[in-house]
Design a protein around this nucleic acid. Structure first.
Lengths: 364, 364
DNA sequence: AATTATTACTAAAACAATTTAGTTTACTCA
DNA sequence: TGAGTAAACTAAATTGTTTTAGTAATAATT
């Protein structure tokens, strides 16, 4: 089905680089040039009351003219702050994560903070190593969405003890006490399941991620609660937990799970899927197996893909305010860094949005 | 069609943080504790020949025991290097970009370099401001995919003059002389167009991005060349350039363009779309307008979405090796930073991969 | 025994900024 | 006139690391 056409074009030209190795202009350079002391220059640039108006103007003009830009290392060394924050996530290559990172970046860069992004690739050891690296690089704070392997949070509490505030986002844990930002996964799952029930479905399967992370467990609970509130008995044969670590495992396990579900009697008439990857992959596999959605089986799932509308059929989703999660988490962290609210930690759960499309329509 | 259910749950607990404000242990701390000089400690840690074996062991043990980690600011200040590189892109929230960033990150973090990602949001002024910020933060090098507004590259050549190497990726320009990494857009477009022709299509429209960037122009050229090589005359009424800066403008302009194409007589029987967003959005809009793909009109386009298989119909794409673009660009930059190849610049064009699915199948 | 090498260390400078603790100078007021 | 004070500046210390230049002490060579 896939026709691969390969070719390499390598063009190269040989040119003199001619780097002139212009060193940055420093405070002392300005001081020397204007025959004043470096401290005066420093104060002039920070608009200190101790400096006269003419001197200030002189310095400012010279600085602007010579494109002076303070050395971040020197300043960081002196102040013990770097004006940078670490962002540690499982993977950057993921639509939902990219949206959250966008929110983080926007909030931080507007406030003069730089972000250093690192990936744990869902590995606990990698996560620990990255925390060490980030600490060494002098971050003022850490935003983290822990790996799914992470059960021991001592690397993070230790960071807190070292004076580096930590904020959890997307994936929360009760094993660390700090600000936390995510969506209300329980309610999102409850709403999705309820929507299926309201559309006349009673035999509802559930496919979730095989992890202890609250993201997954809360969604499972929301599903169960919706069934219970509607007087529908839970059927454990309709509930599947699968390993989503890598794409192949996911596909294989999901395919098996779907087969088991469809072959089981009585078979479910709808599925609520708990993660982005499971939801879209599920649609693909059902399609491949020749099932018609929602005629043979209805589908709704957590997903933030922009392409939900274009899928076949268009996919009903529980949509998360990803950008807002990121920017709120960043806001919480910066307020910790700047010494506010340090004696009371919040857990903020944002509402999800039910986006109803074709895949969950009633059978009629 | 979209039923929005909103709710906010805010739970909060009040807890003592008890940050103990443990300062990092420094070289001097170790020196004082062991009654030796700081320089000895420094040398012991870097395994210098000038230090005796017992002293080395003493220092190393003490350092490990007390979790010594060198202060990156101090080291950076002294060495004039930060072991961090700047990555300046138009937007992080984009599947293709996230994949490239993944490649960059992997290559860099394996070699002890941190990446600082900033977004220009397609704004030239923002790009310039970010370059200044990155320079101020002491980056050792810059990876950049310029904004579509960027025609003046003096902010980048200036950076080179200051001794900071620059590498272009994905979006190239002839206005700066340096290493460049992207795909062979001409060949990718040529192959896609040729594929349509081989499938019996002769009336082939083209929708491209309204920019001077080589990404767009090369793809246009590839399209034209394929037509020419097949003896098909170019029809300018079938060629549309649209503004993709924001989602709404894109949708609006694309919708108009499609209407014009389909209403024109003779009407095209296939479309080759030049960017990810245009390709997927095009499919969505054709679907919405009730056209059947490929029956009414065939479609193939540049796109790196993982969901191409699940789309309705599955979308034939020109796929780019995004991860490889990123990691190769990073490799080129690090080699510049480490003083290799500074007098000969390369442009590396990776091959694209034609992924043929349902949307470009022959009519019968 | 005197000279040279080698080993194993140290003091102090350098990096670029901020900050502490003053020092001038000019001016006010009794 | 002389004390007091505000304004406008500066020298030097500080931050943590690396590096230069140099010092002892021991070992090897003549």
């Amino acid at each position: 089905m896939i026709n691969s056409s390969k070719s390499v074009s390598l063009t190269s030209k040989t040119v003199q680089t001619g780097f002139s190795m212009n060193k940055n202009i420093t405070l002392q350079d300005i001081a020397k040039a204007l025959n004043i002391s470096a401290s005066t220059v420093s104060r002039a640039l920070t608009d200190s009351y101790q400096i006269g108006a003419k001197t200030k103007k002189l310095v400012l003009d010279y600085a602007k003219q010579h494109h002076y830009v303070p050395n971040r290392m020197a300043r960081g060394l002196k102040e013990g702050k770097s004006r940078s924050i670490g962002v540690l996530v499982c993977s950057i290559d993921n639509n939902f994560m990219a949206q959250m990172l966008d929110g983080i970046d926007q909030h931080c860069s507007e406030r003069g903070y730089q972000i250093i992004i690192m990936q744990s690739k869902e590995l606990y050891e990698q996560e620990k190593a990255n925390v060490d690296l980030l600490y060494a690089s002098g971050i003022d704070g850490l935003l983290i969405s822990p790996s799914y392997q992470t059960v021991d949070f001592s690397h993070l509490t230790h960071l807190q003890e070292l004076g580096v505030p930590v904020v959890l986002f997307d994936r929360l844990s009760k094993h660390i006490d700090t600000h936390k930002v995510a969506v209300d996964n329980f309610k999102g799952a409850y709403d999705a399941t309820m929507h299926l029930i309201n559309n006349g479905y009673k035999k509802i399967a559930h496919i979730n991620w095989d992890t202890e992370l609250s993201v997954a467990t809360k969604r499972f609970e929301g599903y169960k609660q919706a069934l219970e509130d509607s007087g529908i008995k839970l059927n454990n044969d309709w509930i599947k937990f699968i390993d989503t670590t890598n794409a192949e495992t996911l596909t294989l396990q999901l395919d098996t799970a779907l087969q088991e579900l469809m072959d089981f009697r009585p078979s479910p008439k709808a599925i609520f899927t708990a993660t982005d990857l499971i939801s879209t992959k599920c649609l693909a596999l059902l399609h491949k197996r020749g099932y018609s959605v929602p005629k043979d089986i209805a589908l709704i799932g957590f997903s933030n893909t922009d392409l939900a509308d274009v899928l076949n059929p268009s996919l009903s989703t529980v949509h998360q305010p990803s950008f807002e999660i990121g920017s709120l988490a960043a806001q919480q962290l910066l307020s910790l860094i700047n010494g506010k609210d340090t004696n009371s930690f919040q857990t903020i759960l944002l509402p999800t949005e039910l986006q109803i499309r074709a895949s969950s329509q009633p059978k009629n």
